[in-house]
Design a protein around this nucleic acid. Structure first.
Lengths: 365, 365
DNA sequence: TCGTCTTGTGAATCAGTAC
DNA sequence: AGTACTGATTCACAAGACG
């Protein structure tokens, strides 16, 4: 049994690349300490000579059907172990992103569900410039799949709805993202001028993931760090990162890359906020503060009326209660937002009561 | 052990809808007799409370008895059995298509692999008009996933490369297909005027599948026939179909539908054509893609300035919001085209941001 | 007949806080 | 832990009404 430590008991190795095997390193880190995990796991294990069956017997050939099955079993074992280690590291309200192609993503998704992660969306990264299918034997493989899942069904995951909506020019962000693959000067090269990593992900992809599902200061872990795209974007966006990478050559490229990255200034990191994040103002406060008088009549867009009482409730011919309850009752609706439903009269004008709430909120800032 | 018959020994029930349980019926049909299977199995959505739109209308959810499973294990057993029965029916060079959403597709894909099917592509159906996410708690679930797999790795599957290329206006068909959901006159209604089936698939989707992966005269089986989209398109395209459906009401609708279908009806072909329009490019994409940095200052012709934020909004001394909103606020105008209003600095030059949009659009063509 | 406006609806794992 | 209450939240089309 692994001895675990409580979050604060051990210092997290922030903004570093840890050398070693992902599973072992994750097991050594303190549990419930990470806000988000982004993982681009290998799907070609390239371990054919070292492939082991679940019972640890060695697989010596991979060209018959039996071994095809056993290689799936080996991949599933690997997936099960790193996902379990990842889950342990997540805070209760943490979340994970994994990315894969049809070779491995179905096994990833099934195992996420088996372990009790709660899938929030699957996201399609639609590549605007994919490699064509040269032989014309299949469709051009023009996308990869990401899965976004919270630690548990009950997790209150981070989702910056308004920020993603802003990124999409005011329209709700969809589950299909059109982004180019990583090319040009963003693509890191080794000393020979060859690409440093076979599957370097574009920074634009991580930008959208981190803006959408983390807050500044959050801890983001990438257990298959590669050349460090996750770390680079996290650093730019003012998030803390932890990278784990086994290959020294990738670590070297990533270290060099990260040293050059600068954080954006903090006003640029402020993001459009949801109304939910605004402080709650009880309707009764408008009455207490004399913005509305007891006995004053409120009116809805469609002409329904109700009278304000001294305790901040409303009374109409048919119902009494909160602004929401009376609105819902008058409309025969399951619910109603009283703040947007009701209006009052001032100097011949019809004014939404939400204006008064805005006034109180602005005084609070 | 099921006693099996050789292909020719038993007459196939062609161009009929067979009443009964998919698994039992498939087991009763002769092995190695079908060229293609298209399957739209229950998704196991696991919905809980009612969902209302912001206008308080209720979303008509898929809450049918046939979509309820007690656990993932129960769903997996069901999947394993129907896939095994399907595989037995396929000719050696046959193939299968399955469709699902993130609720079930990972389990489908993993079980396909476990049974030795060979995945050829996963295909994303990007819906041009999906239902939005009403609560703003996740991304709009705007796609479904299809998996195309041959019976075995060695199968010489059918792929009509040139036909699909022609459907795509001369460009190699990709693994992401933009098609509208099934609405309007195509959507079948019951005697009350309600939708006859909760999840009717568009004919355009089946048109592309059958044109691309079958030949005229091929036998196409759909074990979850529903209202018979697969049969209708197969008939139009001169393929033979076999439908299996448990629910009498769906069978009745499908029979009526199929009676009206004529071979080579061109309407399905028309709807499957992609609409040509200049693609919308959100300003945020320039930021995600690193063409503009968060914190960078944009400038207007008349010297107004604003700073770019990480979510693709602008912030100036007086206002924050989209490029259009901030432009309008600074000019005191009711509206403003931010694309022509704002410029950025590069190498001593002032460059309109629209240049960057043009660049993205040219990549998309 | 042809625009324009209004209404309806689609495979959906869709809330957070205070008591 | 369970209950009660507040109050936030939608995009693309198609069909029908209206002028």
């Amino acid at each position: 049994m692994v001895k675990t430590m409580k979050g604060a008991a051990m210092e997290l190795p922030l903004n570093q690349i840890i050398a070693g095997d992902s599973i072992e390193v994750m097991r050594s880190l303190p549990e419930a300490s990470v806000d988000l995990i982004f993982a681009d796991p290998p799907y070609n294990l390239q371990l054919k000579a070292d492939l082991h069956r679940p019972d640890n017997s060695r697989v010596d050939a991979v060209d018959d059907e039996w071994d095809q099955f056993s290689s799936f079993a080996a991949y599933d074992t690997f997936t099960r172990e790193w996902l379990a280690a990842a889950k342990r590291l997540l805070k209760p309200h943490g979340a994970i992103w994994v990315i894969g192609s049809y070779h491995n993503v179905f096994r990833l998704g099934a195992e996420l569900q088996n372990q009790g992660f709660w899938i929030l969306n699957d996201v399609v990264w639609r590549k605007s410039n994919p490699m064509p299918n040269f032989r014309g034997k299949r469709l051009t493989n023009a996308h990869e799949t990401l899965i976004w899942a919270s630690k548990e069904e009950a997790s209150k995951y981070t989702f910056n709805y308004e920020a993603l909506k802003a990124l999409n020019e005011g329209i709700q962000m969809r589950s299909d993202w059109v982004l180019p693959i990583c090319t040009g000067h963003e693509r890191l090269k080794d000393e020979n001028g060859d690409k440093a990593h076979p599957t370097q992900k574009p920074e634009s992809l991580l930008h959208r993931v981190l803006v959408g599902t983390t807050n500044p200061g959050d801890v983001v872990l990438d257990p298959f760090f590669g050349t460090g795209t996750t770390g680079a974007v996290a650093k730019m966006l003012g998030r803390e990162f932890i990278g784990i990478e086994r290959e020294a050559s990738y670590r070297a490229v990533a270290e060099k890359r990260l040293a050059k990255v600068r954080k954006y200034d903090s006003t640029a990191l402020e993001v459009s906020r949801a109304k939910r994040a605004e402080p709650r103002v009880p309707f009764g406060q408008l009455v207490e503060r004399g913005m509305l008088r007891p006995g004053e009549v409120l009116v809805s867009q469609n002409g329904k009326t109700a009278k304000v009482r001294a305790d901040g409730t409303l009374i109409s011919a048919e119902a009494s209660g909160s602004i929401h309850q009376v609105g819902a009752a008058l409309e025969g609706a399951p619910s109603c937002n009283g703040w947007t439903y009701w209006n009052f009269h001032r100097e011949g004008q019809v004014v939404p009561i939400d204006v008064l709430r805005q006034q109180i909120r602005s005084e609070m800032r």
